[in-house]
Every structure is written in structure tokens, then in C-alpha cells.
């Protein structure tokens, strides 16, 4: 379980996070929603110790993040994390060289699923294919937790469908997934927990299936209520 406890974060004078608290369980897809600039990416960066927080605490399975954690939890930012001059094959080799949790079999499977060629250079890839390579590099790690920042933003509809398919497959099964998005429509049926963020706090956290069952509302209905007050 990933526990985010009352974290705050200031950028200069701007208070981006004012005490954010939520948990993301293993085997569930947790979705951080909010308009742009609300601090979604900052939260993911903070979980991965890629940005310091001013106060609060983040625990992964009860412990603070350390170097070994990166074999258990990984982050797929919204831009590629490899050098543009590298080929897809070289990027995969790099991952294999450095991560014990790298699963070459799964990587090859993903390569086929996304129809990517290992000899292609990252700099020559389309936006959709770059996003797929980025996803591949994260998904092929045998990690318990997977963080994804806006995996659907700015890419074509067919790539989006392919990526959405990943969420319903064995590739994320039994893992804890946190994704951020400002566009819920594509994935409303795919997510378990919804965390609505606004003005640096969690304004509402709920289970999407429960809100449909108990209140007869869609996730978008709830967002409308919360954000248009």
C-alpha cells in the first residue's frame, strides 16, 4: 500500500499541496483527477523522491522510499525517460542492465503488442509510439506499484485504445496503479479509486463502482458537483 500522509509542498511562494492524504492499495487502480496545475504530477514526483516535500510523510508498504524501492515501484512520466539517440532495443538493454526486476519476456510481449521495432531510434518515433515505449519500459518491470502521469494526454485515439487495453490485462493485474489524468472519459470503467484534487487538497475520494451503486452517479457527475460549486 502506498500511504500519502498530509503532504505539503511549496514552489517559491506558491503553495501547491496543502496537506494531501490518500492511500493507494495493491491490486487497485487509483486515479488522481484535477485540472492542470493542481499538483498531480508533484504528488507522483514526491512519492518517487524526485522532489522534496515540505511536510508530511509517504510510505510504501510501511517504509520510506530507498534505493531498493525502485525495484518495487516505478514511475512512467509523461515524457520518455531515455536518451533520444538510443534505439528502443538499447533502452530495453539499459533497463535490463540496471534492474533486477526487468522482465525481458514481458518486454518482448509488449513490443509485439504495441507493434514497435527494437531498431527504431527514440528521436524518430511519433508521439503515440514514444508514449508506448515509455509505457513498455515501466510495465516490463516486475514491480508492485506503477505510477503513470497522464498516460493518455496528447496521443491519437488508436494509441489511447491500446494503452487503455493494458489496464484490463495481466500487465497490471495484482499491481497497485496510480494514474493522473484530467480527461476521465477514456478510463471511467477501468479505475477503482478516484481522488479529486483541488486547490492543493483532496476534495473527495471515492470508489467509482460504489458511487454508481449507492448514488447512481457517474464519476463525471461527481466531478461536476465538486468543481462547479
Amino acid at each position: 500500500m502506498i500511504e500519502v500522509k498530509d503532504i505539503t509542498k511549496k514552489f517559491g511562494r506558491k503553495q501547491v499541496l496543502r496537506g494531501v492524504t490518500f492511500t493507494a492499495a495493491k491490486g487497485e487502480i487509483t486515479c488522481l483527477i484535477g485540472i492542470n496545475g493542481v499538483g498531480k504530477t508533484t504528488i507522483l514526483n514526491a512519492i518517487m523522491a524526485l522532489t522534496p516535500i515540505n511536510s508530511g510523510q509517504i510510505l510504501i508498504d510501511g517504509a520510506k522510499i530507498n534505493k531498493k524501492s525502485y525495484e518495487k515501484i516505478t514511475f512512467i512520466p509523461d515524457a520518455i525517460t531515455m536518451l533520444p539517440q538510443m534505439t528502443i532495443g538499447q533502452s530495453m538493454q539499459f533497463m535490463q542492465d540496471f534492474y533486477e526486476s526487468w522482465n525481458q519476456e514481458r518486454a518482448t510481449e509488449l513490443l509485439g503488442f504495441f507493434k514497435l521495432k527494437p531498431e527504431e531510434k527514440i528521436s524518430s518515433l511519433s508521439k503515440g509510439n514514444t508514449a508506448k515505449v515509455n509505457l513498455l519500459l515501466g510495465l516490463a518491470l516486475d514491480v508492485d506499484y506503477l505510477l503513470m502521469d497522464e498516460p493518455f494526454s496528447g496521443i491519437d485515439i488508436f494509441s489511447r485504445e491500446q494503452i487503455a487495453e493494458v489496464f484490463t490485462s495481466h500487465l497490471v493485474e495484482d499491481r497497485g496503479v496510480i494514474i493522473t489524468t484530467h480527461e476521465i472519459n477514456d478510463i471511467e470503467h477501468l479505475i477503482d479509486q478516484v481522488i479529486l484534487l483541488d486547490d492543493g487538497i483532496v476534495v473527495k475520494a471515492f470508489n467509482s463502482e460504489e458511487i454508481r451503486e449507492n448514488e447512481g452517479k457517474s464519476v463525471v457527475d461527481v466531478m461536476r458537483e465538486v468543481y462547479q460549486q
Binding site: M48, L50, L83, E100
Partner: peptide, 13 residues
């Protein structure tokens, strides 16, 4: 355009 520093800082070392 790339964010290689993410990768470097997320290495399990």
C-alpha cells in the same frame, strides 16, 4: 525533450 534525470534518479542504486 527527454527526461533522463528521472531514469537516473530512479535507478535501484
Amino acid at each position: 525533450k527527454n527526461t533522463f534525470i528521472y531514469r537516473l534518479l530512479m535507478l535501484p542504486t
